[in-house]
Design a protein around this nucleic acid. Structure first.
Length: 197
DNA sequence: GTAGGGATAATCT
DNA sequence: GATTATCCCTACG
């Protein structure tokens, strides 16, 4: 992805990431998947980790756009975000689900699971499947070993917008900031598919 | 098919 | 000491 891509608004980046590829070229082998679900976290959003200003954990969010913000959630899972907005603003896009592409065997081993549709169908799952951890926090996502590359064009009519889940702040939960490829079979829980069947 | 609760640790108050 | 942008297993229809 070119740097200019990440300087769009956070919502535009969240939509634009759908259909592109997340690639992790680790020493255990190359794994990749197509991004099928994202979530936007904006300035002034009470659910945003950066809501109350920069802290040790969220510092990478306030850096330049196009780098990874990774954190540990519930003591056991990592979540991967792409930072957006200019330096000094704490905005980011959470990668919520992938369609596995390369290195599927490696992913199955890491997840101890054979069901490909469930391999990366959630933010904690995809980081586990791809072998992503805190050492990649702050990494520039346009260079190896972890990077995002241009993928297929997703027609806007295929994109569905929904509310975010897993957020405790009631007012922030209702915002339409979750974006998914409606006909994908690899979405996380809580998304109604367009052609369910 | 849906619903509820436990696991588990860095970060923040 | 409370909180959390989650996942999985179990129970029940």
């Amino acid at each position: 992805m070119e740097l200019a891509f990440y300087s769009q608004s956070t919502v535009e980046v969240a939509r634009g990431l759908l259909g592109s590829y997340l690639v992790h070229d680790s020493h255990e082998g190359m794994v990749s998947g197509m991004i099928v679900e994202t979530e936007a976290y904006l300035t002034g959003d009470a659910a945003n980790h950066a809501y109350k200003g920069p802290t040790t954990r969220t510092s990478s969010m306030f850096g330049p756009a196009g780098v990874a913000y990774i954190y540990l959630i519930y003591g056991m899972y990592y979540c991967l975000n792409v930072t957006t907005a200019r330096k000094g603003l704490g905005e980011a896009v959470l990668i919520r689900a992938l369609e596995p592409k390369e290195g599927i065997e490696q992913m199955c081993t890491r997840r101890n699971l054979a069901n490909i549709q469930k391999l990366c169908s959630g933010p904690g799952k995809l980081t586990q499947a791809m072998g992503i951890d805190l050492t990649l926090n702050g990494h520039n996502l346009s260079i190896p070993p972890l990077y995002i590359k241009e993928g297929v064009y997703i027609d806007p009519s295929r994109i569905i917008v929904s509310e975010r889940i897993g957020i405790s702040h009631p007012s922030a939960r209702a915002l339409p900031l979750r974006f998914s490829i409606g006909d994908s079979l690899f979405l996380s829980r809580g998304v109604k598919r367009t052609n369910s069947r």
